[in-house]
């Protein structure tokens, strides 16, 4: 009985840590946007890195994905999907951006 409630507490703490971490990152993102404005690329870089950090926090603490052997297949599937996504997104942006430059609709 005791061991069980200890497990319960530990797993609940995991969710609360994930929630706290995500909350912190959310406040950081909107705080930066509020404080520095959202005009410059440097600010946007910071915002996107914080967004990436938040994705990882939620994957680990909410979806319980990590490098343990037993969840390796799930991680493999995420990594494969991410690869497909990156090919699609970067490929699209590259080709369409190139086209826009050649059509002179997009100032270099």
């Amino acid at each position: 009985m005791d061991k069980r409630s200890e497990m319960h507490r530990r797993e609940r703490r995991r969710y609360v840590i994930g929630y706290g971490g995500s909350l912190l990152l959310t406040f950081a993102v909107f705080g930066i946007a509020y404080r520095y404005g959202i005009e410059t690329k440097g600010v946007y870089l910071a915002i996107s890195l914080l967004g990436l950090a938040q994705l990882i926090v939620q994957l680990v603490y909410f979806l319980h994905i990590d490098r343990r052997r037993s969840s390796r297949e799930d991680l493999d599937l995420i990594l494969f999907s991410t690869m497909v996504l990156l090919i699609i997104i970067l490929g699209t942006v590259w080709i369409m951006g190139n086209l826009a430059v050649r059509m002179h609709t997009f100032p270099m």
Binding site: V29, T40, V43
Partner: peptide
């Protein structure tokens, strides 16, 4: 439900902040 939260992070980062920057 957790998955939808992940997508939403993508939306605020790319759609809203990305839109406002670029």
């Amino acid at each position: 439900w957790h998955f939808l939260d992940l997508i939403w992070i993508g939306i605020i980062t790319i759609v809203y902040f990305g839109g406002l920057t670029y």
